[in-house]
Amino acid sequence: MAGNPAPGQERGQVTNLPLPRYVSMKASEGNVRRGPSLTHRIDWVFKRRDMPLEITAEYGHWRRVRDRDGAGGWVHYALLSGNRTVLIEEDMLTLRAQPSENAQITAAFELGVVARLGSCSQDWCRISAGGYRGWVPKQKLWGVTPAELRD
């Protein structure tokens, strides 16, 4: 099985990294183009630094991305970072001291907050934002796959 990606796991032609995969916006502003070159029209501009994005294709120095709402297009790779972030998908999502529903609540995050992604178990992820860090249920986040495990 060496050299073969997991069943159903596509690899990018440029980077040989898994597709789709999550990244974040490195820049505070980034043009989203209709195609993978500077000659393609700008459809809109992402204006949120650290926003999680999903890469769905690669072409040269360009990555086709989509956001939480499915909006996307082609972005130059220099505008993207491998640093992982997630979007909070539930208003007033409670942050726990440990990965357990019974653990002490340390904070609550509003819907749409961007948080840095740390380690993830089968059901929980450690995140940090606004000086707070702790554990939240993985299914309440956008920017991490259900099967993803992180140390």
Results as ranks from 00 to 15, higher is better:
M25H: 09
S100M: 03
R33G: 08
K26Q: 14
V45R: 11
T145V: 03
Q104C: 05
D67M: 04
G118I: 06
E148G: 05
M51V: 06
D50P: 02
D69K: 13
I105R: 14
R84Y: 05
S100H: 13
G30K: 02
K47F: 07
T145N: 13
N4E: 09
Q98V: 01
W124Q: 00
T94A: 07
I105W: 10
L79M: 12
A115E: 08
S121K: 03
S28I: 03
A147L: 05
R133N: 09
N102T: 14
A108N: 12
L117W: 05
L38W: 08
G73N: 08
Q13G: 07
L87P: 02
R33P: 10
V65P: 03
R66F: 07
F46P: 04
M1A: 13
A108G: 14
E54P: 00
D123W: 05
R68P: 00
S100W: 02
L87R: 12
I55Q: 02
Y59A: 15
G82P: 06
Q9L: 04
R63I: 08
R133H: 10
A129P: 01
R96W: 00
K140S: 15
E58G: 07
T39W: 02
A103N: 09
G131T: 01
M1G: 14
D151W: 04
F109G: 08
E29D: 04
V86E: 06
R33N: 07
A103E: 11
C120R: 02
L80N: 04
G143Q: 01
E54R: 15
L79S: 15
L117Y: 04
P36V: 00
E58N: 09
S121A: 03
T56I: 15
A2K: 06
P36Y: 02
W124K: 00
E110P: 08
L111E: 11
F109A: 08
K138R: 14
S128M: 02
T94D: 01
L80H: 08
G12T: 07
L17K: 12
L17S: 06
V114Q: 04
K140H: 14
E58R: 09
T145F: 09
Q139N: 11
T56N: 10
L17M: 11
D43T: 14
L95A: 00
V23N: 01
R68G: 01
E54I: 09
H40L: 00
W142C: 05
I42Q: 11
G35M: 00
G134E: 05
W74C: 04
E58A: 09
L149A: 01
Y132D: 11
V75S: 10
L79W: 06
T145R: 15
R21L: 12
L38K: 14
G82H: 11
A57M: 08
E89G: 15
G12R: 09
M25E: 12
A115L: 10
T56R: 13
R21W: 10
Q104N: 11
L93G: 05
A115R: 02
S28D: 15
